[in-house]
Design a protein around this nucleic acid. Structure first.
Lengths: 243, 243
DNA sequence: TTGCTATATTGGTATAGACCACCGAACCAC
DNA sequence: GTGGTTCGGTGGTCTATACCAATATAGCAA
């Protein structure tokens, strides 16, 4: 099973092998995996080598170890949410909801000061403002206001943002790939405008999200302010003590 | 230097010792720390034991290891600070604020159903409930309700949570290190109890956070529900398109 | 000066063996 | 039935040893 002549370390080969068993579904969450001693006999390696593979998979969150009981396949990780950079469209699809968008405003404007600062430009530059009501299953979920700035950004004024994801358009036509983003998430009461557009009661809570998105070269190209309905949306985040 | 008769593992004692040298500034970022072989001779332990201490400190980000060169004190991280798993205390310190806590309730209870599910235990298990009002600069910022469950958790009932961070106590006395956490963050209106404790107006928005924290073996040991003042607190997150 | 080589040191991998605390189940005595 | 004990299995810790690849340095040769 393991190739002792390979340049890849044995514990690494074993990790990949176990990872595959979990990914393929052969081992289900909660199942007990073979003990260190079993693995060492089965693959003709020492217990410490098997141990290293199990230990590292446990710190990665794939396995859960219990002294005196055994090692178990962990509950699956949350794939989406705050750790992976996704747009609203992918986000909703991951939750099994039908995403939609209604363009409220698409215009050439001068950026407000906080957008200019986020995009690292002077306020006299012309940028594209895109305001969309985001839907899931036909219901309004969020109001997104995006400030976009890159070379040739004005061509965006002719795009169709109701039937295509912003990030898809940027990737396919403009070769801009979102690579990194910084978000600030807070709670607030909705404004009157948001109340009407989102069809929520007066004084209802909203999640406010301010995001700066950077492209593959580390340049900021998008600054977006969003208001999500507090009763219909939660952010999910997976945190790690390491890295 | 190390106490071989102590119940604390030798590698753990060595970790604390090295951690102290870094925290005190005796070792500066970039400094080379003694090699595995030096440490094993100096403290009369085997190389593998010294190795375990260095390895774990490296995965925690305090040390940087370079094959063929040595082990060095890592530069303090800035970029990844936003996705790092921290408690309220470290969180506030990172923002330059003086953290504080007022214990509202510390008791032995049966877990509510959603806490039992999060902690992967049956609802008849006894756990420790810790409710704290979290302060920053003397002002109330959040109400935190933690459900704690691990072997010997009841000893927590005698701890002082007003002057010590929960995660510090867990690490130093119980050898439990938070390694991973999953959070759900939403917006809501405050309850009457929260309104009074947080000293905010009626109907004010709060950020609700539900967190499951896993230890170094991947076992859930803490389920915490928090309500943060919407006017004083934002979550920050850094997203990546990769991995 | 430049480039090579030998050497010592470093962390990385791997083995074999030992003892411990903890858990669960089977068993036994009351 | 209840409450112990025993026992086998598990992960956690620790030692001692060995070899490897990468690195830095000192010394030597062109």
């Amino acid at each position: 099973m393991l190739d002792k002549s390979s340049p890849l370390p044995l514990y690494f080969q074993l990790k990949e092998l176990l990872r595959e068993k979990i990914a393929s579904g052969e081992w289900q969450p909660g199942d007990m995996v073979p003990s260190e001693r079993e693995l060492s006999e089965q693959y003709y390696i020492s217990r410490m080598t098997a141990r290293q593979a199990l230990r590292e998979l446990a710190t990665e969150g794939l396995l859960r170890r219990e002294p005196g009981r055994g090692t178990f396949v962990a509950e699956p990780k949350i794939e989406h949410g705050l750790t992976r950079l996704t747009g609203f469209t992918e986000d909703m699809q991951a939750r099994g909801l039908q995403p939609g968008a209604k363009v409220i405003r698409l215009a050439r404007v001068s950026p407000p000061l906080r957008a200019a600062r986020a995009l690292q430009i002077t306020p006299d530059r012309e940028i594209v403002l895109l305001e969309r009501l985001r839907l899931a299953g036909g219901e309004p979920i969020a109001l997104e206001t995006s400030h976009l700035c890159f070379n040739g950004v004005l061509a965006l004024l002719d795009e169709d943002f109701e039937n295509h994801s912003l990030y898809h358009i940027l990737a396919e036509k403009y070769h801009i790939t979102p690579a990194r983003a910084v978000q600030k998430i807070g709670a607030d009461l909705c404004s009157q405008r948001e109340q009407e557009l989102l069809q929520i009661p007066e004084g209802a809570p909203v999640l406010r999200n301010k995001r700066i998105t950077y492209d593959q070269w580390g340049r900021p190209f998008e600054y977006t302010e969003s208001a999500y309905r507090g009763d219909r949306y939660v952010f999910q985040a997976e945190l790690s003590a390491f890295q």
